[in-house]
Write a protein that binds this DNA or RNA. Structure first.
Lengths: 159, 159
DNA sequence: GTCATTCTACTCGGATAACGTGTGTCCGAGTGTCGTCGG
DNA sequence: CCGACGACACTCGGACACACGTTATCCGAGTAGAATGAC
């Protein structure tokens, strides 16, 4: 799985702690984790295309969450970066088997494909059940200092 | 996910229908699905290293299942091809955050890492609960002709 | 006829290339802000 | 003093290189079996 997923999740989580409506530049978000600014920018663009964050150009511009953290699931972020396709892609090799028929959609018929798909469904369901608000709340209950630390850390960087 | 996983799963499933103890050459297994023989051979080597199949060299050689299909899970095959690492690799970027401490293992502490790991755990558990024998039985109940067709298809190819 | 021996052909196994996707970087388009100038 | 205008600086957005992992291929080591010849 792409490393950008981790970056995107942590960055979105950081954005949940920004309460003034001001957007945060990609360079600031990147510097917080010592990440390559231009590349994080690229990931943020993907999040923007998926409607998870909204971007504003120009001075005082940057990124902010596009909607309530309770309406953003972890799966949303993963899909925005990784794409909507399943990890296991059934290439339907049964079609090339001796008794394979070209008309059949083996992605539905093939038992192996079904097993893999059910497993991925569980994975997706678990990630879809966790919202950014859930994660935020869990972090705050375990590490009460994090919200202020994050706010301070970002504020000092955007001067 | 690597395409070799699909090849390996279907090939192992085909091997469950071989009942005489004779091994089947990689070239025969590959031709059954019109796959590149040398490349399937490579995947079979990975399965052999993991102890899922056993290989015998020379004439009349080939591959055969190394143990009872009831003792081979779908996850075993996936891990043999893809490797044991999780798809989501926590790079511990929290260490580079302003208040990150190098001594902490954030793979355990980080909430995001925990969420991702739990989801993958469900995925793995589902695949670990399905054995090759289960898959074989399901296929046989839905398509009773498959065992004989597969045996015939492979027999005609190994002459 | 039987056995040992040699030869052959077959199969795996790892070393070696080609391709594609993810990783990383750069510069241009657009925009808000600040300073300046005129009224 | 106030407002409009212009230049500037900042930010995103997409286009452009690089690297690594997957995909694919080939040839050599080893081995079982068949053929051959001697006894």
């Amino acid at each position: 799985m792409s490393e950008g997923v981790e970056w995107a999740l942590h960055t979105c989580l950081n954005l949940t702690w920004i309460e003034d409506g001001r957007p945060v530049p990609a360079a600031v978000l990147a510097d917080y984790f010592k990440l390559p600014p231009a590349y994080l920018n690229k990931q943020l663009q993907a999040l923007a295309r998926s409607g998870i964050v909204s971007s504003v150009s120009g001075p005082r511009g940057g990124f902010q969450l596009a909607r309530d953290p309770r309406k953003i699931t972890v799966l949303d972020v993963v899909v925005a970066i990784e794409g909507p396709e399943d990890a296991f892609q059934c290439a339907q090799i049964l079609r090339d088997a001796p008794d394979g028929e070209p008309g059949i959609d083996y992605r539905e018929t093939c038992v192996i494909s079904q097993v893999m798909r059910k497993a991925e469904l569980l994975w997706r369901a678990e990630l879809a059940a966790r919202t950014l608000a859930d994660v935020k709340a869990t972090v705050e209950s375990r590490f009460p200092g994090t919200p202020n630390e994050t706010r301070q850390g970002l504020r000092s960087r955007r001067a």
